[in-house]
Design a protein around this nucleic acid. Structure first.
Length: 311
DNA sequence: ACCCAGGGGCAAG
DNA sequence: CTTGCCCATGGG
């Protein structure tokens, strides 16, 4: 019998968190007597609905959910850490309740191998295709579990391509093979410094600095990691004085870590959300076009003119 | 240091 | 319907 219940949560915005590009498999449904989210944590089927400070759940447990959504993070402390930087502080105020999650390692690592060159909507499609084709079906949710490394390794590149992965199929298959064979242990990175863990992650096929930082932030709880994509690059660039020398992505990452402090990854997430929703105005950028009312996933990264310059 | 393949959805024409 | 655009990684 699946356990259901209700728990009190600290400052939390379930929808904002699940739509912020950290996970790609939660689906909005009507359940638990209202608008809910259906998904899973590992192989535990879960349905969630938030009502103010109350989180109604079916499947899982308060302990599991508290850990997954990192209810132990002190968001007030995060906000205070950037109080001296007005744009960051403003973003942190606007994103109250948006939490950086603590995801299962393999699921997060593999999901972000899907992410290069893709927008959130398409990563969701690839993730769901992989889950449907290779994942363990779960009762009580429409989302199957993320497939085991061994399953994906044995499936082979050709089968993975059928899930729309394109050139990512090769990277995912090869990385799955390394994990399945035990040559790479995701758990073993927990004890390493962030820099050492980043180096290890970057040795895997399909993982470069940006993807490694996503994994470090969303699964390994390295809250100082700053994944620099074009949006974050533009945001960070806009903070620098006009005419200052153009920075490489590596330099921008270090700049972001210094500027945004010990919770740089959190602050980056807030700024990213602000830029995506058009609340943070960037120079030389058109206002993002309005999302269609029915669009559930974060979709449009558009609105940036080709040729616009980073700082 | 620079250059470009890669792929599929989406907006614009 | 067709064209152009997006974009991290890896390899030349």
């Amino acid at each position: 019998m699946v356990k259901a219940g209700v728990m009190e949560c600290p400052e939390f915005n379930l929808g904002m968190t699940l739509e912020s590009g950290q996970t790609f498999h939660w689906m909005q449904v009507n359940d638990l007597g209202g608008a809910s989210w259906s998904g899973c944590i590992g192989s535990i089927a879960i349905t969630l609905r938030q009502e103010g400070r109350l989180l109604h759940y079916r499947g899982g447990s308060p302990d599991l959910l508290s850990r997954y959504f990192a209810f132990d993070h002190d968001l007030e402390e995060v906000r205070l850490s950037c109080a001296a930087h007005p744009a960051s502080f403003k973003a942190s105020q606007a994103c109250r309740g948006l939490r950086v999650m603590r995801q299962p390692l393999w699921e997060c690592l593999a999901s972000f191998i899907l992410s290069p060159m893709k927008q959130v909507a398409h990563i969701r499609q690839m993730s769901l295709a992989l889950r449907s084709r290779f994942g363990q079906p779960l009762k009580g949710t429409s989302v199957p579990a993320f497939p085991e490394a061994r399953t994906l390794a044995e499936a082979g590149e050709k089968e993975l391509r059928k899930c729309g992965l394109g050139f990512r199929a090769k990277s995912l298959q090869a990385t799955a093979q390394l994990v399945a064979s035990g040559e790479f242990h995701p758990e073993a990175l927990r004890g390493l410094s962030t820099e050492a863990a980043r180096i290890e992650l970057c040795r895997l096929p399909g993982i470069g600095r940006k993807v490694a930082n996503c994994i470090l932030l969303f699964a390994y709880e390295r809250l100082e990691a700053v994944p620099v994509d074009v949006w974050v690059a533009r945001i960070l660039g806009s903070f620098r004085s006009q005419g200052s020398r153009k920075m490489t992505l590596d330099q921008l990452e270090r700049y972001g870590e210094r500027l945004l402090g010990p919770y740089a990854g959190y602050i980056q997430q807030y700024l990213f959300h602000q830029a995506r929703t058009g609340e943070l105005v960037l120079p030389k950028q058109r206002a993002p076009r309005k999302k269609p009312a029915l669009a559930k996933a974060i979709t449009s990264h558009r609105g940036r003119k080709r040729g616009s310059v980073i700082s």
